[in-house]
Design a protein around this nucleic acid. Sequence first.
DNA 1: CCGTAACTTCACAATTTTCTGAAAGAAGCG
DNA 2: CGCTTCTTTCAGAAAATTGTGAAGTTACGG
Lengths: 171, 171
Amino acid sequence: MTETAGGRDAEAVSKFVESFAAQLVEAGMQRMPARVFAALLSSDEGALTSVELGERLRISPAAVSGAVRYLTMTHMIAREREPGSRRERYRVHGDQWYEALTNREAVIKRWETALREGVASLGPDTPAGRRMAETLAFFEFVDEEIVKMMERWRGRRDQLFGEGRSLAEDR
Amino acid sequence: MTETAGGRDAEAVSKFVESFAAQLVEAGMQRMPARVFAALLSSDEGALTSVELGERLRISPAAVSGAVRYLTMTHMIAREREPGSRRERYRVHGDQWYEALTNREAVIKRWETALREGVASLGPDTPAGRRMAETLAFFEFVDEEIVKMMERWRGRRDQLFGEGRSLAEDR
DNA sequence: CCGTAACTTCACAATTTTCTGAAAGAAGCG
DNA sequence: CGCTTCTTTCAGAAAATTGTGAAGTTACGG
């Protein structure tokens, strides 16, 4: 019973890929990046080549290229050169991708900037200005907290899955 | 010097509204809900009527209606009946809206469901299945942590802004 | 109860987004 | 060095999204 072999219930896997991608889309990610990411996540290697992605998802090389560019920029995946070949492999960042998801540092920072401008525009003594200020304080708080939370997570992860080589089996 | 009066640097306020809305859009919110929300946030009352929203943002009643429906469903705002009038007011949920933003309970729950299905489809003993399982554990962890974080936030908020009536001046 | 003000729903037009095929651009291998 | 294989870019067709006007619905006030 070779369950990890090539055609291991491809049906069910594809179904999962699409349904997980749909969740990501609903959370704001573009469709193609979401599908590509889900495909990588569900691969045993945690990595696939462009061609493999194109085949599994039935999309053109161009679509793969675009999706991969986005995912690389947002640090959800890494690109690797397969030695001795001009093929490229794309790999889920093991235990870093959901940090990227949660963190969204850049996003939060921009919000904070916008809110600071808001306080300035509205005046810190107006009711609206005070509301902005409190909201701003909230985001600053969240910022700090998330850093600490991720530290705690790493602790628990090691405890649950063993420190040795959890998902970071590679790299 | 009536700074809170009607025409308090409407220019600057509008500029803030649009720029904050743009951030929300970038984070995945639809345009109209984002603009409506930003407008409410920057109003001194923390609440506006449909007509006021339409005027400030230069959009049709239909657009207001759609935006408001979305925002109500996601618990970002509340609707109030103005007594003795058939006008409706929409109010930012004071200190609850960013909880809704951060929480996204529903979203996380759906992700967890999808991931559980993933583990089942892929088999818990495959490498991919193990990766799903770890990801799932992460979300479950985040779930718990966010609850605690919000409790800590309320503590700090009371400390920073005074327990009496911070933003929850109404309701 | 009727008149009317406020809000909602619906179909459509306009815009924007998305994905593809085709062509151009790199980079290993012989 | 040129051939071949893989990836990226680009223009455009197809599809989805968005916001509007207009008709419809609700419910207050008289």
